[in-house]
Design a binder for these strands. Structure first.
Lengths: 142, 142
DNA sequence: TATAAATGTAACAAGTATTATTACAAATTA
DNA sequence: TAATTTGTAATAATACTTGTTACATTTATA
């Protein structure tokens, strides 16, 4: 599932919305229909994202009537990097061309050089996001 | 053209490949077929990207027999931020959900908060890439 | 125990984005 | 005049994202 490539999507926004709701209403089983209504997306999308959050151990869920999901860790323990890593699929700078010409001196080496550049760039982002917690984000809401 | 959203693509890799070739073979008209062969992509894609570089004033081109493209500015004047801006289409962290529920206290405010987070994150990236020039990248090739 | 409500997930459909390809007018050189 | 190349439109092919339908399973409670 979600074998996509990069953030050409709303997944970060969706997951942080879900987590914000769960953090704002702790100790309550919020169901996917209610969450979906706040985001204005399909409940199945919410359940798919919740399933990922569940596998990360951030969320617990209860099936059946009166069921729903609840945050299982402190919002101070979840950083923006954690969220980013949960949804990211490749470098910030995108993909590399896969079959560059090995007979060309540039084509031969470029992917090794791009790898370095892409990795460094990703690290910059990860370091910056590491300093921001879900808790701080959620506290901005009254 | 290219009304896409974000870097779910090879455009950064493709443009930097093109620019590297042009920088490595200055004062020569490199044609799109030759460039395309080094990257191993379709020549029309190369011409489309060259058309963007042309509009940015980075490249000059010559039509007709013996024509091609050539770098028109020093590679030290082009930063990775410049290249990133040439291809980027939205925030690093993706898109926002467009119609969040205004009746929900979270749904009502989240896009404003995400806007701040997304902008800050983009700024971090831009600042880091600003320090890297095309010249430095190109010099890594023998 | 029966019913209603909820998750979890598979399968598929629809929408959107990216890349490739074909085609050709216009420009340029020799 | 012939050959070559850009520039760009149009379209096709591929891939990714989101939405939807369906349903087995689980759970609460009347």
């Amino acid at each position: 599932m979600y074998l996509c490539v990069i953030m050409n999507n709303t997944r970060f926004a969706t997951i942080i919305h879900i987590l914000t709701l769960l953090a704002k209403f702790p100790d309550q089983w919020l169901n996917s229909d209610w969450i979906a209504e706040s985001i204005n997306i399909n409940p199945v999308i919410v359940r798919k994202e919740l399933s990922i959050l569940h596998k990360l151990g951030w969320v617990i869920s209860k099936k059946g009537k009166e069921g729903g999901s609840m945050l299982h860790v402190s919002s101070s323990e979840i950083s923006m990097t954690d969220i980013y890593n949960a949804v990211k699929n490749s470098s910030v700078l995108g993909k590399k061309n896969t079959c560059t010409n090995t007979k060309c001196p540039i084509g031969m080496k470029i992917n090794k050089e791009l790898e370095k550049l892409f990795d460094e760039t990703d690290r910059v982002l990860v370091n910056a996001l590491q300093k921001k917690s879900l808790k701080a984000f959620v506290e901005q809401f009254a």
